[in-house]
């Protein structure tokens, strides 16, 4: 008994050491980022690194709102991100249900079509897509970015993978009970896929929030631009003002972190606890 508890203790200690090392590797760059955001440009790259600036320049955080319209950019990005995420969640889980649990003609072929496009780098069809979008009059509208991001093959692929792990018997039983497929999706599958949905939410949110090339190409009017373009504007126009760049980066990071923190508890309640056992 005694031996075993010592053994468990050692294992736990090793576990923590490993985790702390990992956390350090993950976090240090961000600590650097925050510390740089509080420095004068010329002090940013001094060595050895001064982790806590002796004279923190909080002005950097005030200045970024006036040098570029960062407020507008954040508002735009928030709007785009929320709409895209919702559309993505709804349409992907809907389609994924059919791919995972229904029999229909051309299912495998259509799914292959989805998977195949995941493999296609956007740079390849960026120009034809742009010309097409513009001919629809979508250039310089937020709709272009919404259409660009909301129907990604990735979402369907991810949701389908999760639905596949749900036993078919569950759907069969519901069908025998006389439930329509729509109700099965809404009342059985959707609640079961909470972890998958939160995963997809986070990924879509992050992708849309951090998307750079799409908005750069489609949104050329100042009042439509997004945060990442704002960051890039900072970097190209104030290329040596690292303090400001880092302050803007920190601000751009905050919303994503909030979304992650508020959603991550859903990962914990897993598929198992949510429905399979009950």
């Amino acid at each position: 008994m005694q031996v075993q508890s010592i053994q468990t203790k050692t294992i736990t200690t090793i576990l923590y050491i490993l985790l702390i090392l990992c956390a350090l590797a993950m976090l240090l760059p961000f600590v650097w980022m925050v510390s740089a955001s509080l420095k004068l440009d010329k002090d940013v790259f001094t060595f050895p690194i001064e982790w806590i600036p002796s004279n923190p320049r909080w002005e950097n955080y005030l200045e970024i709102w006036t040098t570029i319209p960062l407020g507008t950019f954040i508002k735009n990005t928030a709007k785009l991100t929320v709409i895209v995420t919702l559309l993505q969640l709804l349409t992907s889980s809907f389609a994924a249900y059919a791919f995972a649990k229904l029999e229909f003609k051309g299912r495998d072929l259509l799914f292959l079509g989805y998977v195949a496009t995941i493999a296609m780098p956007w740079q390849v069809y960026m120009v034809p897509q742009f010309i097409m979008m513009r001919s629809f009059g979508l250039n310089n509208t937020h709709l272009s970015i919404i259409f660009l991001q909301a129907f990604s093959a990735f979402g369907v692929f991810l949701m389908k993978q999760f639905y596949m792990s749900v036993p078919d018997e569950l759907c069969e039983a519901a069908r025998i009970d006389g439930m329509s497929e729509y109700r099965i999706w809404a009342q059985i599958m959707l609640p079961l896929s909470k972890p998958a949905l939160s995963t997809l939410t986070i990924f879509t949110f992050v992708n849309t929030w951090n998307d750079f090339l799409g908005p750069l190409l489609y949104l050329t009017r100042m009042e439509l631009k997004t945060v990442q373009i704002g960051l890039r504007m900072f970097i190209s126009q104030y290329s040596s003002e690292y303090g400001l760049i880092m302050a803007a980066s920190v601000v751009a990071l905050i919303p994503v972190v909030i979304v992650f923190l508020s959603l991550q508890k859903f990962f914990v309640q897993g598929v198992a606890t949510a429905g399979l056992k009950g």
């Binding site: 709804l90 349409t91 992907s92 809907f94 389609a95 249900y97 059919a98 791919f99 229904l102 029999e103 229909f104 299912r107 259509l110 079509g113 989805y114 496009t117 296609m120 390849v124 069809y125 034809p128 897509q129 097409m132 979008m133 259409f147 660009l148 909301a150 129907f151 990604s152 093959a153 979402g155 369907v156 329509s180 497929e181 729509y182 999706w185």
Partner: peptide, 25 residues
Amino acid sequence: LVAYSFIAPNFIGFAVFTLVPIVFA
């Protein structure tokens, strides 16, 4: 038809804005 109705919302958007440009590419 039920199955297709599940797929349609996503697939239409996907086909128009991704698949067509890809075929062109």
